[in-house]
Design a protein around this nucleic acid. Structure first.
Length: 897
RNA sequence: GGGUCGUUAGCUCAGUUGGUUUAGAGCGCUGCUUUGACAGAGCAGAGGUCACUGGUUCGAAUCCAGUACGACCCACCA
């Protein structure tokens, strides 16, 4: 068989993925095995794969493949989120491109359009995940708006309403004038922006005095219902109780005193606009002020303002400033830094607005989520965080003083419609909702409340839909149809899930709320572990985002480096929880990855390295001679060291240190296996190798690609099959297990490796060819390389030295070096100039003397000797004697120079 | 204003309860090698007073306090 010169992911990845699917390896049904479950953080149905998904799903796939190969029933449930506002915004945009406004369509027409969009683009991201190698159980793919998940949402809404955990009320809310819906606080992104600060004077009624206030929002003056000053502010005390003329209007408003006002800020006087500011609203309630709503839903000025009616608020601000100036009311304008809230999805500036919405009472829920992760105020509950410090951030969100009620209604069409009906003709805050799964059941409630004469035609459903997260928080239960008692066995088998993998930015939006719903409906936390990934950032540490255009095209990256290369690159950059800087430059024109993506490239080269190791083993002809001493030792050594590595890797899995596990495997395969083991057993050019040695090499290499498989599934599956005829695919082959190992054998071979390195160093520094056979000797007649013929032969082969001899004193023309405490001589050809040798030894000697002195200091310190544990002192004594031996050896060499 | 995380080699980062030969890896860099698995390679090398200042301790990159700088979260912002 002739293998290609280089490994080519393009010819293997698609083939293996198709094969795995065909064999149905990823499908899970409950059986007698232990389950290992992950539910995917559902990407937006219209989304495309980005860097965050790449990282997140690589981690999930590693965990799930590891579980599958460890004999567990691995179940990774994929799916998508309907992403109410994000998707609706996209559909609206697409309609607009065709010249259609949302308001031109009926609700039904719009939804038809949206479903069409979903059908067209909804599956893309899942196909992209397959390119990455994600071993999801595709037969379980769910969508948050499919019928059974929608039923779960309805069921929960009705249940919470009946339990008194929902309420409907008129509250100050965040209004997105572009999408024309309310948003939760978490959907508003605050950024610092420069804004003009206008100083405006209000004339005091019946006086020549003016009261000057400062505002960044002069367009809301028409909604002012008071001017407030601090009660103890002597400048204004005499004005409290009087009235001012509100500029731009013909109204007057009272001057009130309230200690909310900061005397130090601006002029110490503050305009109060209860309809358009959260704090002003509070002040207004305290003083029973009129609420004058001067903003329309689309952000234009409402008729109640009496001026600038129909003008957008941003433009009205400028018009108001101009008018105030013309009226002589504008005192001055300052440049001012203030924080502006924008809609996460539409980017529109969010307006505080009083609207009628549905809310979930959160205090009980928050306590439940908190209880899931803490014990006596410390981390440690049913759910464990990795890394644990996210506990503090979690508490900041969910802690008792922090949490606020959750606004769950949205004035959108794409989403789960609220299962509440009202009697026609009733409206506003006082209208009585009849909450039930169907209109028929709502009618029964309505009849009982309002009289038997009612018919279906007398009811109208709430127009709003629910916040996307109101379905997401049920995800770990609803993907198993767990709200239907008929599926209890399935739920019991897979739930609680083992781990959820997510970035920390949705800690409250999603993770905390899943914990709340989990506890409420199953009595258990929905997952045992949370693996927090960091955010993926670019070289300038900016969050990767579509709007910045700094995110490489994920598929182009996979095309360029192979899925294995990208998986390697993502993971080796990602220690759990830390943000990762992923510097994968892309060509701005073609959006193709440039070849300088160091980490992915390293992954790609790793694949190639493994491919070449395969080629080497594959090309060896065999004979039936028994293994020689060197090969026997090499095989024992690599097997034992592999056991050590396997143990380490399993420990890394257990503590979710996946990048450490990958790092260990990388250096074991590249270093120990390729650079050392294969060289140790490699036959002379075009000579055959013992068949038992080749078989051992194949066995060992098979174990290695086996352990590596969860990280780099494609290249390992390919090599697995190229190495030998198999009756099982690597994807489902059991992982090798660590056996006991002999540390002393490992140590003896490591000592030989050290000597080899020192010989190579000598050759390198003296400009000698590796081919030149050199005599070597040691002053230690008991050294293993003298007494053990196998080790001696290994040293000869690896360092290209002649027979290892015992020498009492330094031979002429030799250089010396110390390994451990043993001195070695390497006799060089006469042509080599030893002039620099003295300098080298002096440098080394100075270093060793310094070392010895530092240990001596320690050991002569009475308090150290009396306080430190025996074991530590013993180690120090050993360090001292070893150091002294090295100093003596070096001094002797120096004398010879 | 409250909080979290970080500061270790040119870059990106490990360093797990304080003690393992006076700090490690990958990449980059430098030198040498090179028809024999792999130049997408091999071998070797240079490069760090572990941000700063105090403290605890026989012993601190590691624990404590403070300072500086950086990233981020929450709240407020007339």
């Amino acid at each position: 068989m002739l293998l290609a010169k280089h490994y080519d992911p393009n010819t293997t990845e698609a083939r293996w993925y198709a094969h795995w699917l065909e064999k149905d390896y990823f499908t899970s049904v409950p059986d007698e095995r232990e389950a290992f479950t992950i539910v995917i953080p559902p990407p937006n149905v219209t989304g495309v794969l980005h860097m965050g998904h790449l990282l997140n799903n690589t981690v999930q796939d590693i965990l799930i493949r590891h579980a599958r190969k460890s004999g567990k029933n691995a179940c990774w449930v994929p799916g998508t989120d309907h992403a109410s506002i994000a998707t609706e915004a996209k559909v609206v945009k697409r309609l607009r491109e065709r010249g259609i406004k949302k308001s031109d369509l009926t609700r039904e027409e719009f939804l038809a359009e949206a479903f069409e969009w979903k059908e067209e683009f909804g599956g893309i991201i899942l196909i992209q995940l397959q390119r990455l190698g994600a071993s999801c159980d595709w037969s379980r793919t769910r969508f948050t708006m499919e019928p059974s998940l929608s039923e779960a949402v309805t069921k929960v809404f009705v249940d919470l309403f009946n339990k008194g955990k929902l309420y409907r009320g008129l509250r100050m809310t965040n209004w997105d004038p572009e999408a024309q819906t309310v948003l939760s606080n978490e959907e508003v992104i605050h950024t610092d922006e420069r804004r003009p600060l206008y100083y405006v004077r209000y004339k005091v009624e019946g006086s020549d005095e003016y009261l000057t206030i400062a505002t960044v929002r002069p367009e809301t003056i028409m909604g002012d219902s008071a001017v407030a000053v601090h009660p103890e502010d002597d400048r204004y005390r005499h004005l409290v109780g009087k009235r001012v003329h509100v500029p731009l209007t013909d109204r007057t408003a009272p001057i009130i005193a309230d200690d909310y006002v900061d005397r130090e800020f601006g002029t110490g006087a503050l305009k109060i606009t209860p309809a358009h500011d959260v704090n002003d609203n509070e002040v207004g309630k305290r003083h029973d002020l009129e609420v004058i709503d001067i903003l329309n839903a689309d952000g234009t000025i409402a008729a109640a303002a009496g001026i600038f009616v129909g003008v957008d608020r941003e433009r009205a601000r400028k018009l108001a400033a101009r008018q105030l100036e013309a009226d002589g009311a504008l005192v001055k304008v300052e440049d001012y830094g203030t924080s502006v809230g924008r809609s996460e999805r539409t980017g529109a500036v969010v307006e505080p607005r009083l609207t009628l919405q549905w809310f979930v009472k959160m205090d009980d829920f928050a306590a439940k989520a908190m209880a899931g992760v803490e014990r006596d105020g410390n981390p440690g509950g049913e759910t464990e965080f990795h890394p644990p410090h996210f506990f503090n951030m979690f508490r900041q969100w969910v802690g008792p003083d922090r949490v606020r009620d959750w606004c769950i209604s949205r004035q959108l069409w794409w989403g789960h419609r609220i299962p509440a009906w009202f009697a026609k003709g009733t409206d506003g805050e006082d209208a009585q909702p009849f909450v039930a799964p169907t209109v028929g059941e709502a009618l029964v409630l309505a009849k009982a409340a309002l009289g038997g004469h009612l018919t279906l035609a007398d009811l109208q459903q709430d127009e709003d839909v629910l916040d996307t997260w109101f379905s997401s928080w049920l995800w770990p239960i609803s993907v198993f149809d767990g709200f239907d008692p008929a599926n209890k066995a399935e739920l019991d088998y897979y739930y609680p899930t083992d781990v959820v993998v997510t970035a920390w930015d949705i800690i409250y939006l999603w993770i905390a709320r899943m914990m709340m719903a989990g506890e409420e409906y199953t009595g258990e936390m929905p997952f045992k572990h949370v693996y927090w990934t960091g955010m993926v950032r670019d070289a300038q540490k900016r969050k990767m985002s579509k709007s910045l255009g700094n995110s490489p095209d994920a598929l182009a990256l996979i095309d360029a480096y192979g899925a294995d290369g990208v998986r390697y690159g993502m993971l080796s950059a990602a220690s759990a929880g830390g943000d990762i800087i992923f510097d994968a430059p892309i060509d701005p024109k073609t959006k193709q990855a440039l070849d300088e993506s160091q980490l992915c490239n390293q992954g790609k080269m790793f694949c190639n390295k493994m491919w070449n190791a395969l080629k080497l083993i594959d090309m060896w002809e065999t004979n039936n001679a028994p293994a020689g001493a060197v090969e026997g030792l090499a095989i024992d050594w690599i097997k034992q060291k592999m056991s050590l590595t396997l143990k380490q890797v399993e420990a890394d899995y257990a503590s979710f240190r996946l990048n450490d596990a990958l790092g260990s495997l990388y250096s074991f395969i590249w270093g120990d296996f390729c650079s050392w083991f294969l060289e140790m057993i490699k036959p002379e050019y075009q000579q055959p190798i013992s068949d038992e040695v080749k078989a051992a090499a194949i066995e060992i290499y098979s174990d290695l690609v086996n352990v590596l498989h969860p990280f780099m599934p494609f290249v390992t599956e390919e090599i697995w099959h190229q190495l030998a005829e198999r009756d099982v695919d690597l994807c489902v082959a059991p992982l090798p297990v660590a056996s006991s190992f002999d540390e002393s054998l490992i140590a003896r071979v490591e000592a030989v490796k050290d000597i080899v390195s020192r010989v190579r160093e000598q050759r390198s520094s003296k400009g000698l060819s590796p081919r030149e056979l050199l005599p070597i000797a040691t002053t230690n007649p008991a050294h293993a390389v003298v007494t053990d013929a196998g080790l001696a032969e290994m040293l000869q082969k690896m360092a290209n030295v002649s027979e290892v001899a015992f020498a009492k004193t330094e031979p002429a023309g030799a250089v010396s070096f110390v390994v451990g405490t043993d001195k070695f001589f390497l006799t060089l050809p006469e042509t080599v100039d030893l002039g620099a040798e003295r300098e080298r030894i002096e440098k080394e000697l100075a270093h060793q003397r310094g070392f010895v002195i530092s240990i001596e200091k320690k050991l002569t310190n009475e308090r150290f000797v009396s306080n430190a544990p025996e074991a530590v002192i013993a180690v120090e004594r050993k360090k001292l004697s070893d150091g002294q031996a090295r100093v003596a050896a070096l001094e002797e060499s120096l004398a010879m120079c």
